[in-house]
Design a protein around this nucleic acid. Structure first.
Lengths: 348, 348
DNA sequence: ACAAAATGCTACAACGATTTAGCCTTGCCC
DNA sequence: GGGCAAGGCTAAATCGTTGTAGCATTTTGT
């Protein structure tokens, strides 16, 4: 039941716990412990399969070798895949991950931060929610390494790794225009956060650059916390409300999925009657008939960058403030059949 | 930087840390601390936003309020969704979750167990790998609460929550037979673990009960650790190798996805030329054209049961061994177009 | 009025590690 | 042989919390 402690080893080796600690932490030379004693201690430690109690160590050193990962929803493919990358990368540095989902709810996010804080995690990877800037500032002031992901606060000088959402949306929209679509709508999430704003701006910029008239009736903003049935219902009535609708850009993966369902239940032929582009790649987009064009995020690179930045911060000496590393990765537009005018007829 | 400790409160309140601890742990009455002092302490604690250091508490009490969740792959939809349910349920009991992915590799799993152990997690939720029985026994003997999921070891008397995999596969196969399919193949993972064995057995039992001849050429067992391209390649050549193949049952979600890709690259019409049933539901199965029939697991119920059992164990007094709770949940066969002979022609 | 019981609180050890300060030898130099 | 340095180790404090044992003081019972 009780684990092996440093004392047990000390007793068996006939030395003090201090000596054992020195040896096991590789400070034998530095602390002038004889080879003889060192070897004996190491042998005993191995025989007893000694593993230091991380709680005790953490209490003493202030380092828990744990990072907190706050995502929007761990069940979402995008975040789950990222969690895997983060897990793997963190593991290389012997860190473990405590995760939590905010469901884009600021109160939940605050709660998570609090819990992670008093669990003394060493660093944070945060997908922030709307009003989390204050809390993040406080953490940062407390000297805790933080890397924001997916979105960030422009007025906060923090590390972050995000997608070039503007470019993602711009490319998607420009692609639709180049394919000959004239009346392009966007279905997005009602949110002031950077990732959604940038997508919206990218969409509008592309229209403008291609001299396509824009008006507000082409935009549908939905609340984040609808269930699927309501998403579908809202999207359907929106699509029906736009005259001569040509194509639609869904600004998140789950909107894309619900969007496809909506369009299908309207019995419109995707790629023929209506062009579709989604966000984030997904098995569904790849294998749907017709396959769905999408803006794909480089998940591996995102995760690697996040952990790399965090590790650098964690190993940074003392309170030396480093200038924030802010990485904006390029998306890839994966062109598939849903946006290439498969040769079919058009409605209207 | 430094957090507020019990000592800070003690100092401000002019009492001893012991008193503060008693009050803050709700033992004021029991330990006969006056109302006056109690209130004062509580007020100060609130003002300072005191949060107990969980490391220190864990070190002292031996309880970390953390559970270890070992899954096969957190990026897999099935496990990610379950991780969400576990997170939510654990949160209700103020537990946090440390996760890790085994990739079905026993060495990785052992490593994870070790790490979780010396991080003193209170309980474990484990998706075991092949030879993990020994380690699990050891943990159990050490009195650690453990709940296995997705699969279990028949010779180990442990708690577990699994699907009735036999029934899942049986129902799927029987359904195909009832739809008139005669030559039904199975693509599964080469594994001796219960979940795969049961699926295999369910498949065979259904064939037998329906007097459909069985032979080994109808079975393809693939190693778990292939990448998608190789899965597809293997599945394609297998499908081509079976004479008069009618229908195929894919025994895991990722095999189903690769299976669909394989069949499509063979240009066979799913649901018409070949019946298909997959395992675990997925957006792709629901929205594929044609939609894919599948055996669906009750994820919410699985997660709830797991956490419920674990919490019961965690609150169990001392070493009182409880008889293991072993829950086998019924799957639901979701019948869709891929297995209902959409009226099209058949090959051959 | 005096012992016994109840009240209200605290000192201190412990959890398991790390780390600072320092103790005793032994060896060396002149 | 006296002083100094180096060598080889350890005592004890510390991290923040909990919990046992116990110390005063007041109240109660007879």
């Amino acid at each position: 039941m009780k684990g092996i402690s440093i004392k047990d080893i000390a007793k068996q080796a006939g030395v003090s716990p201090t000596t054992v600690s020195f040896v096991l932490n590789g400070k034998a030379k530095e602390k002038r412990i004889s080879e003889q004693v060192s070897k004996r201690i190491i042998k005993i430690a191995e025989r007893l399969k000694y593993k230091p109690n991380q709680l005790a160590r953490g209490l003493r050193t202030g380092k828990t070798k744990t990072i907190g990962l706050i995502v929007e929803d761990i069940a979402n493919n995008f975040f789950a895949t990222l969690a895997k990358v983060v897990e793997d990368e963190a593991d290389k540095h012997h860190y473990k991950v405590l995760y939590g989902s905010t469901e884009d709810n600021t109160e939940k996010a605050k709660g998570l931060l609090e819990v992670l804080k008093y669990r003394q995690v060493d660093g944070y990877i945060i997908t922030p929610t709307k009003n989390l800037d204050k809390e993040i500032e406080l953490l940062r002031e407390a000297g805790k390494p933080i890397v924001l992901m997916d979105r960030y606060f422009p007025h906060i000088n923090s590390h972050y790794v995000v997608l070039d959402n503007f470019k993602g949306a711009y490319d998607a929209t420009a692609h639709l225009v180049n394919q000959g679509y004239k009346k392009i709508a966007i279905v997005t999430i009602a949110s002031d956060q950077t990732q959604m704003k940038d997508r919206m701006n990218g969409f509008m910029a592309a229209l403008k650059d291609h001299k396509i008239p824009f008006n507000k009736s082409l935009v549908k903003r939905l609340p984040f916390d609808l269930d699927r049935a309501h998403f579908i219902q809202e999207i359907k009535s929106f699509l029906l409300s736009v005259k001569d609708l040509d194509a639609v850009f869904f600004a998140t993966n789950y909107l894309g999925i619900s969007g496809i369902e909506s369009i299908r239940s309207l019995q419109w032929e995707i790629g023929k009657e209506i062009g579709v582009v989604g966000f984030d790649d997904h098995d569904l987009f790849r294998l749907h008939s017709p396959s769905i064009t999408c803006v794909s995020q480089p998940l591996q690179a995102i995760g690697e960058n996040i952990v790399e930045i965090l590790m650098k911060e964690l190993n940074r000496p003392g309170a030396a403030e480093t200038p924030p590393t802010q990485i904006v990765l390029a998306p890839e537009l994966i062109v598939r059949d849903s946006s290439t005018r498969g040769g079919g007829t058009q409605r209207g």
